[in-house]
Every structure is written in C-alpha cells, then in structure tokens.
Design a protein around this nucleic acid. Structure first.
Lengths: 125, 125
DNA sequence: CTGAATCCGACACGATACTG
DNA sequence: CAGTATCGTGTCGGATTCAG
C-alpha cells in the first residue's frame, strides 16, 4: 500500500460510518501513513487532505504525548519536520490491521442493517 | 468473567484514558456484557452504573440499528426487555478481545509516556 | 513549509425529573 | 421495570486567517 496515495482513504467512507475507531478520528490513518517510515507534515496531509492543519497538528501532538510517534525538527530553511512511529506506535499497526479486516468482512452487513428502517430514529407513521 | 459484576469495569480507568474505542463510549462494554447470553436493561445498568438510562438507551438503539444486538419486548407486567447479541455482534467479541489484550500489554507504556511532560499542553516555563 | 490563533457549529455525554 | 423529556456542558472537528 502506498501511504502517499491521495485515494488511500476515500472521501467519506472510512471512519465516518465505521462503528470502530482507534483513538480520535484521524489517529489510525496517521499511524498507517507512517508505517513505511518517517513522513513530513505535508506528506501526511496528502492522504488526509480532508483535515485542516490545526486538527492534524492536534492529533500529531496527542500521538506524540502518548508515545506513539516522535517529532523531529531539522534546523533548515524551509523548515522540515518529520514524524516517525515509535516501537509502541508500531504495536498499533497489528491492531489497526485487525480492525480493517473486520471492516472489510462485516461492514456491508452493518450498512445493510442500517438500510432497513424499523429501529432508531425516524417516525414510522 | 461475570458480566454482572459491578466492578467488571472499574470506575475511571478503562475507556477514558484508553487510546482505543469501539464505537462510542459504552458500546464495547455493552457487547461484553451480553457475551454470555441475553440481558435485561437493568442488568446491563449494573456494571455500567456510571451511565444514565438515556445514554444507555441511545447506545442500545444504535447497536440495534447496526444489527449488533436484538431487542425483545415481553408483554408482561412488570415489563421485561431483553437484549441479545446477533451473529454480527458476536464478531465484535474477538475484536474487543484483541483491543483488551493490547491495552493490558501497552497501556502502562502509554500512561508512562504521558507522565513525562515536554509535549502537548501545559506550560513549561 | 510548518504550523499558531481565533471563532464556531455539531454532537456526545451527562444530571435531573417524570411516565406507562 | 424500562424507559422518555428537558436541559446543560464540554469536547471534537472544521473554516478561516495569520506568522516564523
């Protein structure tokens, strides 16, 4: 998988309908983006182009605080900052893989269940 | 494990600090409560005594809408309603078990990382 | 390029009280 | 017993703008 492919996470499907979540909305996708090595801020923004820099920064800081990633600033111009998974962060990859496998297998059933009304919101007469 | 043990989920530890979550805040715990068979509304409230009936109802309805549980009303007095895992809902048990194993193994490291300041919020000078 | 500052809406979650 | 109704709160996520 290419973590820089802009279509790796298609626009609205993945985490909005999914009944699963690792941490907050974008954490799992960031972890996956960093799977193959360190990435720069703007590189992460490519596949997560539906986030704003503020939210991306927030999420990265939270992951750093939890010891999932490291943040390295290089004293250059233009500035360069690289994010990389820690060993602890790498342990999440397996977990995410399990979740993705679950979703691949069962998400259609969830969506089908949502189709038939009868439960939840909505007046029925 | 006894899903009716009030201390099955200790007060503040589990899902608040956990960087993982299945669905919303209480879904995973409800699923686990239903592992060994159908349970009544008030039985689920025991181990989840930190929820309000409103939130519990909301969560149960969402799980029902997603096809994870069934809701059966018995025409008796006093009323009796039972919730039970569907086959689809049972597939979440494995996933939750994986998450719990991850937490057992790595949560201490996460908490340790949070202890050392230097990142995130908080003034340091 | 890598963010920080500010403002804002939506929604999850909860406390409290009441009902068939 | 199993909810509903109402109200309040905080947090998450986003749009926009600006800075080193």
């Amino acid at each position: 998988m290419d973590p820089l492919n802009p279509d790796m996470f298609h626009p609205d499907c993945p985490s909005s309908v999914m009944p699963l979540r690792i941490g907050d909305k974008w954490s799992a996708m960031i972890i996956v983006c960093l799977e193959d090595g360190p990435r720069r801020f703007s590189e992460i923004r490519v596949p997560l182009r539906r986030t704003t820099p503020k939210v991306l920064t927030q999420t990265l800081r939270a992951l750093e605080r939890d010891g999932m990633i490291t943040r390295t600033v290089y004293a250059e111009v233009p500035p360069r900052v690289e994010y990389e998974l820690t060993e602890l962060g790498r342990t999440l990859l397996d977990l995410i893989a399990v979740c993705r496998r679950w979703a691949d297998e069962h998400l259609p059933a969830v969506l089908a269940a949502r189709e038939l009304p009868g439960v939840g919101v909505g007046p029925e007469g």
